[in-house]
Design a protein around this nucleic acid. Structure first.
Lengths: 146, 146
DNA sequence: CTGCAACAGTTGAATACTCCATGCATTACA
DNA sequence: TGTAATGCATGGAGTATTCAACTGTTGCAG
C-alpha cells in the first residue's frame, strides 16, 4: 500500500474547503475578543466594515446588498450604529427616498481601530512578507470576477 | 510622486486582512444558498461541521469549545439537530455527567453533501491544482500553532 | 466512608439579529 | 396625471446567543 502526504489533484479542493472553514472558525475566536473590546457585535462590525471612508456614502439598500441581508435588517443595524454615534444617516436631497450613510469621526476611528487590532493579532503575521504577497495574490485570484 | 502597484511590506498585512474579510463576506452568499437548499441554518451547519465522522464523538462541552460558544447554546443546537434526526446524543456510561454526540447516517450524509456542494461551487475551483496546493500550504502555515 | 468541591449539562429570562409582509412617501414614466 | 416602481420603516415571528441559577454526577481530602 502506497502512502503519500500529497493528495491527488481531485482530493485537493475538499481539503482546501475544509481548511478555509476551520480557519474561519478559528478567526471567529480572535474577532470575537476584539469586538468585545470595541463593544461591537458581529453584525454591527460587518456593517461598519462596509462603510469605506474612501468611497462614496452608500444608501441603505446598497448596504443591504453588501451585507447580503434584508433591507429591514439594515434599518435595524443603522439605528444601533446611530445610537452609538458611529454613523450619520441623511436623506439624499437629490432623491428624498434614499438615505445616505456616512461614518462619523468616531465611527471612522472605530473602524480604523478594528482594522489595526485585527492586523496586529492575526496569525497571518507569522507569514513572511513574500508569503503574505503570495497569499494576497491567490485570494484575489480566487475571488476575481468570472 | 512615485506610484506603485506593489505595497510596502508594512502595508501588506492590513490589505491582506481586508481581503480575507471581504472574501468571507463573499463566502457568506454562496454558503447561504447552499444552506437554504439543505434546510440548515448557519449555526446548525457549524455544529454539524464539528462532528467529524472520523474522530471520536465529542461531548457537549467539547462541541462548545469548538464552536466558541456557551455550553447552553450547544444544548439548544443539539436539540434542533436531534429533532431533524441528524445526530444522536447519548449519556456516556463511563461518566454519566457527559453526553457524547454522534452523527446519524442521515447526519453524516448531510454533512458530506454540504462539503461536496461547497467544493463544487467554491470560486477556489478557478485556481489551478498547483495554486490550490500553494494556498493550502499558506493557510496551514498561517494557522499552525506558534 | 462522608461530605464538599468541581464538573457536565439544562433551563429560563433577556437580548440580538434576521426575515417577511405590509405600509408610506417619493419618484419615474406611460 | 395617474399608476407603477423604488427606498425605507414597522410589526410580528422565528432563530441564536449569553448569563445566572439549578440538577445530577464524580473526585477526593479527611
Amino acid at each position: 500500500m502506497i502512502e503519500t502526504d500529497v493528495p491527488a489533484d481531485d482530493q485537493l479542493l475538499p481539503l482546501l474547503v475544509e481548511r478555509v472553514f476551520s480557519l474561519s472558525q478559528n478567526l471567529k475566536g480572535v474577532v470575537g475578543e476584539i469586538l468585545a473590546e470595541l463593544e461591537l457585535t458581529d453584525a454591527l462590525a460587518d456593517a461598519l466594515w462596509q462603510l469605506d471612508p474612501a468611497g462614496p456614502p452608500p444608501s441603505m439598500r446598497q448596504l443591504a446588498a453588501g451585507l447580503r441581508c434584508d433591507p429591514s435588517t439594515v434599518t435595524f443595524l443603522a439605528d444601533r450604529l446611530m445610537e452609538r454615534g458611529l454613523i450619520d444617516v441623511r436623506v439624499d436631497p437629490a432623491d428624498r427616498r434614499r438615505k445616505s450613510v456616512t461614518l462619523t469621526p468616531k465611527g471612522a476611528e472605530t473602524r480604523q481601530r478594528l482594522l489595526a487590532t485585527l492586523t496586529n493579532r492575526t496569525s497571518m503575521n507569522r507569514l513572511s512578507p513574500a508569503e503574505q504577497r503570495q497569499l494576497y495574490a491567490l485570494l484575489s485570484r480566487a475571488v476575481a470576477a468570472t
